[in-house]
């Protein structure tokens, strides 16, 4: 459980951090900082629910699975929205301010994020909840890798 909460916080911190940089970078703000925070909060809530829903004493094992699947699908959907936003940022002018190498890595990172969202969605739709933790760990790695590459350089 502690591990899952750590992952949730990491995902939130990564996504929240990426957004803050861009919004405060002095350029055209295409994505309001408040949106970043709201989306991060939503992700955090989803992750927490994935974690605590199992404490419902009345629900059967399949009902608990249903709850986890529902929140995993919403998590996947929200991560996909984040990826879409990151793509949108790149198309506007974000990539112009990056070196060719950084732009390539940025685009790959966004693609990796999308893949993570798709992987979570696939696992959830097939009710393969036993694979959910590993897919969420991949999501965390993807966020950390992207943020460690761009987060500091483009920080506040």
């Amino acid at each position: 459980m502690v591990k899952k909460i750590f992952l949730a916080c990491s995902v939130m911190a990564c996504l929240g951090g990426c957004y803050r940089e861009y919004a405060s970078n002095g350029g055209e703000v295409t994505y309001d900082v408040r949106d970043h925070k709201l989306q991060s909060t939503t992700l955090k809530e989803l992750m927490l629910r994935l974690d605590v829903s199992i404490s419902d004493n009345y629900k059967s094992e399949l009902e608990k699975e249903d709850t986890r699947v529902r929140y995993a699908l919403r998590l996947s959907s929200d991560v996909q929205k984040v990826a879409d936003r990151l793509k949108e940022m790149a198309h506007k002018d974000f990539n112009k301010r990056l070196s060719n190498e950084d732009a390539r890595i940025y685009n790959e990172s966004v693609e990796r994020l999308e893949n993570c969202a798709h992987a979570i969605e696939k696992v959830a739709k097939n009710y393969e909840v036993e694979h959910l933790d590993s897919k969420i760990a991949n999501l965390k790695q993807s966020c950390v890798a992207c943020h460690s590459r761009f987060g500091v350089a483009y920080g506040r």
């Binding site: 404490s55 419902d56 004493n57 009345y58 629900k59 059967s60 094992e61 399949l62 009902e63």
Partner: peptide
């Protein structure tokens, strides 16, 4: 016996919690 049921698509058949039960319960 507590539960004995199957689920496929949107169908549930067997013995399990009634749909009238409180959906949210206190801890």
């Amino acid at each position: 016996l507590r539960h004995a049921y199957l689920q496929i698509g949107g169908l549930t058949a067997g013995q399990t919690n009634s749909a009238f039960n409180a959906f949210v319960t206190v801890d």
